[in-house]
């Protein structure tokens, strides 16, 4: 009887261990898919021009053009090129840290990832996005022949959205849709990745990201990428001192 109990305990232990292994293997696979999706969205070091359009419920639009650079997984900087009222502003992101430089203010000030420096639905973290795998742990929520649906949980409390639900094409490992949720489970916004385009140098990715939010009914924000070029930068261009000098890189 005693031997029987020991055997039962060993079987139970082995089953629990196997289930844990199975889940961690699944998480590992999800993290790998996420990393690949990140690589397909953004090369490790590049420069690009982006246009951001904020559409209001009355149909009117506000447009901005940015010059943006990125290096590694956690360094992003961008320069406002137009309109004239915003020209010369620059923004910097180093991991969880974000700053905005306004020429009239004369020094960089810390900003938060949830804020929006340009109005509309895109937050600062959307505009200056790091690799998703830098900020989130992934697990596979569901999958079919066409796509994976990943469940992404924020690694730290500094991340703008606590949870993401991400749709990825199985064949190309390209992100097609992301839903952003608050800790309460409320849907904050939906990002749709459209117009897959060959930018050259092996970069094939959606050229347009469109976002809508149930919190801003009737509003729509669109980000359009143009001319993504691979380029190496010294680390010092991603510093507070260099923010007023970002225009030198163009």
């Amino acid at each position: 009887m005693k031997n029987y109990k020991i055997l039962l305990f060993i079987i139970l232990l082995f089953s629990v261990f196997s289930i844990v292994q199975l889940f961690s293997a699944s998480d590992k696979k999800a993290d790998e898919i996420l990393k690949k999706a990140d690589e397909n969205l953004m090369p490790s070091s590049f420069e690009t021009y982006r246009k951001l359009i904020n559409e209001e419920p009355d149909g009117s639009k506000k447009e901005y053009i940015f010059y943006s650079i990125k290096k590694d997984r956690d360094k992003v900087a961008m320069l406002y090129i137009s309109p004239a009222s915003e020209k010369g502003r620059s923004a910097l992101r180093l991991g969880d840290n974000m700053w905005l430089y306004i020429p009239n203010v004369g020094r960089p000030i810390r900003i938060t990832s949830l804020q929006s420096s340009v109005g509309g639905i895109f937050s600062n973290s959307d505009i200056m996005r790091l690799d998703y795998s830098e900020e989130y742990n992934a697990s596979i929520l569901e999958q079919n022949d066409e796509e994976y649906v990943l469940d992404l949980k924020a690694k730290t409390s500094y991340v703008a959205y606590d949870k993401l639900k991400m749709w990825i094409k199985k064949k190309s490992i390209i992100v097609t849709k992301v839903e952003c949720y608050a800790a309460s489970g409320t849907l904050i916004k939906t990002l749709e990745f459209k117009e897959v385009k060959d930018f050259g140098n092996g970069i094939v990715r959606p050229a347009v990201i469109e976002t809508t939010s149930p919190l801003y009914k009737g509003y729509r924000s669109i980000m359009i990428f143009s001319g993504i070029e691979l380029r190496e930068f010294p680390d010092e261009v991603f510093t507070l001192d260099f923010m007023p000098r970002l225009c030198e890189l163009r």
Partner: peptide
Amino acid sequence: TNLKENFE
């Protein structure tokens, strides 16, 4: 420093 994503 930022203590939280919305609090500096």
